[in-house]
Amino acid sequence: MMRGEKSLTKRFIGQNVVRFRSQRSFYGVSENSDQFIQDLTASQNSLYGYILSLLPDRAAAQDVLQEVSVTAWQKRADFTPGTSFFAWASKIAYFHVLSYRRKMSRDRLVFDDEVLDYLAERQLEREEEVSRRGLALKSCLEKLPATQKQLVEQRYASGGSVQDIAAKEGKSVGAISQTLYRIREALLKCVEQSLAEEELA
């Protein structure tokens, strides 16, 4: 059965070395839990991105991510090791997004079912690309001029709103918004370029 993981152990019978296969059930539980926590932790960023794309509201997406992490842990026995963790967890996220949408008031509903389903499917297929984008972004952030980096940090690290930053900097909301927009454009361009170079390499 594919469900049993194979591991070879050595055992001596008399003088002959005999191999036998241990069954996962004998070993696996705590190891699997550790592995599961690792997978879950490693997937947090991609899951957040997944949820945010379907529910483009940072606070809502963070709430849903929290719920998804707990549900994933409770349902961890359903996960088949060796299969894609993101694919599995994103399904849970999908249902949590649906249920969150049901609870949301009608005037906040952003995407209809067709768009939502399409985005959800595409996110699954983009899993690898998105993680490459994440890696590229790290080095792109390093290349950002100090003042721009500071602005991005104010906005994203401490969750400051554009209004807060404008007030603090003594600038107009429009100016901050425009600067942030340009920085994102530059970062996107840098990421695209890194990916293109990667493909050539």
Binding site: N45, Y48, R126
Partner: peptide
């Protein structure tokens, strides 16, 4: 959105 999410997570 990927950029948005990654910025937030990366910097946070």
């Amino acid at each position: 959105i990927a950029l948005e999410a990654q910025l937030e997570r990366e910097l946070q």
